[in-house]
Each structure stands twice: as structure tokens, then as C-alpha cells.
Design a protein around this nucleic acid. Structure first.
Lengths: 187, 187, 187, 187
DNA sequence: AATGAATGAGGTTTCATTCAT
DNA sequence: GATGAATGAAACCTCATTCAT
């Protein structure tokens, strides 16, 4: 019995992120999460009020990752590629998946969409620094397509687990992925 | 009160495809599907044994779509692009989404993965006709990344509905999407 | 297995009225009610949406009873007395108890209070027919005190079961009860 | 952080009486009581073993109130009337309510019934002093009906809050209430 | 003595499925 | 063949209580 509340919360959020990202919101039960975290189910409600509250907490942390705040487009592309190639193993790789997992609650949906839009705006800022303030739709669409690539691949590799993509070596992934992103973001 | 069994089955599969693709497997209830189809709930079990059986029937039909059986790579790329731009409105646009919706049943998962792999092989065949019989992993990976692009965008447009991507005009989508696919499949 | 929906609803409402009146809203579980009615628990939600919906349905029926729509005050007093003396055995005797059982839901509380007030107004109309339209507070208070007597005794006899009151013979109850009501309503 | 155990107990019993009387036993949570008392929840179990133990402690104190140990019937009637008119505000007014709040535990029920019966006997002693030792059922029933009046009105005024009764002025209540009690207890 | 963390039992509700007409 | 009724399993959540500090 661990008597550290903060640690327990982290345990729960960690377990929840994995389950939500991998199995989807509806398919994961709070008992699954609690079992993974090794704590009692009731603590989910105690600390996060509801299953949805726990999901929201996962989103909050997820919003932190995938932050390309550098002005160097090359570095940004590298980050995106890194994000994908590390996907089945890395902790952060599930953050993007969380953003497409629906809970059925409208307020959560709004947060999800805003977060995704925010990421896209950051990408456009990196791609066309001089027009950073007011990106037009054409640019945003390109950025969001780029995010779609990352998202689609992460799904295929982690959730759907299609071979050979899922267990493909880093060497096989980097070149084509970078080519695709390059075609989208470098004008 | 439709006395034509075959027609009822079609009605159910149609409604189920929409629901499964859009809301996910767990989030859609058989009552939703039956209501959409305008038939009695019990008929789902009568005709498809179980909810999972209905999903399997949707997969069977889904496997039929997205068949690039032409040897012309240009046409194939056009088909993929068409698939995406028609996504929120078109009936067939949800077929790919079905392939990433998990049911929790392992046997269904196998079918899903095989279908996706099959699609990838067809894509490689179109890309490199002379090596059609035995594609190497590098080619398959490229094809699956291409599918990931289509898949990721379809999710963003239909399920997640991120703007401006979701309601972007065809004119804004075609060029970047085609560029990305070109970078992936044309060597 | 009874396949008559209307009959099942009646069964449930009947069992619920007894339980709610006797044990109180919070103390009665939907499983208790379903067991008493001899039907499956899920039917409560099917037919009445929620436990609270079932309670509301009980209130609706309860509102029908205890209707002294006769202009003869003597008859009205007799009715009230009858209501009390029949209390532990009679079906209708629990209707007044329902009106003081709180659910915690504010909307239900409003209904309860309105129903009680409505009963009081009817009583005043019987007591002072010529001022039926606009009873003043003094009259309403007297009527509500009379209702309190009926209510208090019903509680004591059915829920609390204090002896000798609970099993007191009709002969012992009528005279004092009627005297009290007379003192309240006959000016 | 009160270091005085006795004071903490009083705080808890006070808060519990209010909650139990007003909301009922099942509807009040031990956390509510602890919060009202401003102490930690675990102390309820520490000092009173269980929620039921706390209720029992409330009953013990409640038994002390409403003691018409005077031989003057007029004074006794005044006390009863006072008890009712002071009901929404006064601390002691909830003591009678406690006596009709069931916990579901049979042993507690016995205590409750005995306490109520005891009160009735005291009333008969005041009404007919010469037969104080062995009251017959007819007298006890009259006394218990009188208690029912007080109880019913207290419920209507505090728990159900029916208007105009709940906020009726003392002047409007005294006369009819005394008339009813007089009809019951003065032979 | 007091507190916050943790637990387990039990409550309501949802939902896929089966039964009977 | 089709329908509404009925069922049981399981999900989320609440809450009294116990544990460890």
C-alpha cells in the first residue's frame, strides 16, 4: 500500500494513458486502469471525479508533448519523425493517439480539437516563420495533413499493429516519412 | 416491417458501417444501428448472430472497396486522393476507418490486419509492377505509410473533425495530399 | 415470465410504492423493488428511466388518491379518518407517506410540495365552501395541520410501528382522531 | 485540530442530529457530518464505532428532550405547542424527527419505539394523573395521536417545508394546534 | 489524538442477447 | 419473419470503514 497521493495519481494517469491510447476510451474499464496501476478502483473517482475526469487529466499532460517551439524547420521535421519511430515503445508516443480518442462528451471534444489545431499552428509557424502570426487555411491544412501522417502511422504501429510497419526498423521508416513530411511542409 | 430478409441485412450493414466507422465499435450500440436501419434490434442477432458478427460483415464489404486493381500508378494515386476528399459525405469513405476500429476480439483483429496488409500489397504492385509478386519490406512499409496518410486524414476529417481540415475545399486538399503520396510511392 | 408490459409496470409501481412509503427513498434499492414485483431489475430503467422516474410515477398515482371532492365536510372528515384507520393494510394508505419521502431531487420536491398544497386547498374548500376560491393563510394552515395529523399517524402506524397505536382497533382510533380534525376544520 | 475529545464528540453529535433529522439517516453521509463538525471523518468511527453508533448517540441525547415532567396539563400542552412553533430554528426541534428516522437496524428500531412509547406514557400521566401507574390503551392511543400531531407538523415544517405552514407565524399556529391537542388530551 | 490514503461492498444503470408471441 | 418483453452480466460510481503515518 503506497501512501503517497501524488505518486498514486501519476500511476493512474500513466496507466490510463496507455489504456486509453491503445484500447480507446470506451473499451478500457476503470478496473483495468486501476489494476494496471496496482491501486484500488475507487481512487480514480477520488482523485479524478470520474473516468472522464481521468481522461481529461491525460489530455492535459498530452498537450505538453509534441511542442516544436524551435524556428528551425529541419529540427521540427526530425522531431515529428522521432515521435513516430519511437512509437510502440515510447511513453510520449501515445499522446497523439489520445487526441483522437473520443469520449462522447462534447466539452472534451472541444479541448481535443483545440489542442490539435494548436499543434498545427505551431507547425505552420515553423514552416513559414515570416507569416507566423496569421497563417492562412492552405498552410494550416498542410500542417494538419502532416499531423495526420504522424497520427495515422502511430495508429497503424501501436493500435492496429500492421506488419511490417509495426515492427519496421528505424532505418526503413525515416527516409520515406521524412520525404512525405518534406513534401507537405517545405514549399 | 420489411419482409425481404436480404434487404434488411443490407440496411443493417449500411447503418452499422456508418456507426462503427464514425463512433467506434464500443461506442455504438446495437439499438442505435437498428434504429438507424429502421428495423427491430433482435434481427441483428438473428441475421449476424452477434454484434461482432455484424462488424465482421461490415469488414467483408469494406474489403471490397479501395481496390486499386489498375496498373497505372497515376490512377491509383488519384483513387486514394478521391477517397480522402470524398470522406465526410461519401458512403465508401468510412471503409478504411472500419479497418482501424478494434472490437477486442482477436480473430477480428487478424482479419483487419490481413485486409490492411492486402491493400498495401496491391499498392506496391501498382507502384513497382515488375516486382509485383514479391515486394520487399521497404516497399510495403512505404505503401503502408501511404495508407496511413489516407487513414489519418480520414479520421481527422470525419471522426475528430478538426478545422480547417474537416471542411477544407477539394482544391485545398488535392495538391499537398498528392505531393505526399507521390513522395512515398514514386521512386 | 409475464409478457404484458402494462402489467409489469403496475407490478413495479405497486412494489415501489410500498417500499418507498415504508422504508423511504434512499433505503429502498431497485433490486428490492424488482424482487418484490418478481421482475428483472433492468425493467425499472426500461420503463421508468431511473429510480427517480419510478418514484415520480408513484407520486403521479398518489396524487389521484385522497381527493375529497365532495362539499360535505362530514364526509370529508370521514374520508380522512378512514384513510388513517385503514393504514397498515390498505394499498392507498401509503400515498400520503410518499409525499413526505424526499429523493434529493429538487424538481421532485417541487411536485411533492405542490401536491400537498393542493390537498390542503381542497380541504379548505370543503371546510368553508363559500370562500372556496381564495382561502387565506389561516385556513390553509388549519388544513395543513389536519393533513399533518393524518400524516403523523400514518407514519407512526406503518413505518415506525409504535404500539399500541400501530395495532389499535378502529374503535379506539375513530373518536379521538375525529375530535382532533373537528377542532381543526370546523370553525 | 481540536485536542479535546469530549468537545469533538459533542461537535459530531450536534452535526449528526441536524443532518439525520433533516435529511434522514440514509441520505446523510458521514463525510457530510464530519465536514459540518469540522473534524476528520475517521473520528466518527473512532468515537462511535460506526455511523449507526453515532445515530444511537443522537437518540440518547434526543431522549432527554421533550420531557413533560410536570403534572400540570396546561403546561404540558404549552410545551408541545412550543416545540412545534420553534421547529425550523430551534436546536431541540429535531429531536422528535430523529425518532422516526429509521436506520434499518432492528435494535435501533426497538430503542426508537421504546422512546416514543415512553413519551406517550408521560403524556398520559400528565393528562390523567390519578391513573398514572397503569394507563389503558385508549389513553395511550390518545397520547400517541397527540405526539403524531407534533411529529407530523414538525416534518411538514422542517423536512418537507410545505407553505404556508412552514413559515407560518406563531400567531397562526398556536390556536388551532392547541385546539387539536386539547381535543385529544382533555377528556 | 488526528489525518489523509486506501479499500471493498453495494448501488444504479447500460447493453447485448434470448424468449415468447 | 418480425416484434416487444425480459434477462444477466458488467460498467461506473458512492460510501462507510480501515490502515498507516
Amino acid at each position: 500500500m503506497n501512501k503517497d497521493a501524488a505518486a498514486t495519481r501519476l500511476l493512474l494517469v500513466g496507466a490510463a494513458r496507455r489504456r486509453f491510447a491503445f484500447d480507446g476510451y470506451r473499451a478500457t474499464t476503470v478496473r483495468d486502469i486501476a489494476a494496471d496501476a496496482g491501486v484500488n478502483v475507487a481512487l480514480i473517482n477520488r482523485y479524478f471525479v470520474s473516468k472522464e475526469g481521468l481522461f481529461r487529466a491525460c489530455l492535459d499532460r498530452a498537450a505538453g508533448g509534441l511542442q516544436p517551439d524551435i524556428r528551425n524547420l529541419d529540427r521540427v521535421l526530425d522531431d515529428l519523425v522521432d515521435h513516430v519511430v519511437s512509437s510502440p515503445t515510447d511513453e510520449d508516443s501515445m499522446q497523439l493517439l489520445l487526441l483522437v480518442r473520443s469520449t462522447g462528451d462534447d466539452r472534451v471534444d472541444v479541448i481535443r480539437r483545440e489542442t490539435l489545431r494548436h499543434h498545427a499552428e505551431r507547425l505552420t509557424a515553423a514552416a513559414v516563420p515570416d507569416r507566423a502570426g496569421s497563417p492562412d487555411d492552405a498552410l494550416l491544412v498542410r500542417a494538419q495533413i502532416a499531423l495526420s501522417v504522424v497520427l495515422g502511422m502511430t495508429m497503424m504501429r501501436t493500435a492496429t499493429r500492421v506488419e511490417p510497419l509495426a515492427s519496421a526498423d528505424e532505418a526503413l521508416l525515416r527516409a520515406p516519412l521524412r520525404a512525405a513530411l518534406h513534401a507537405l511542409l517545405v514549399l
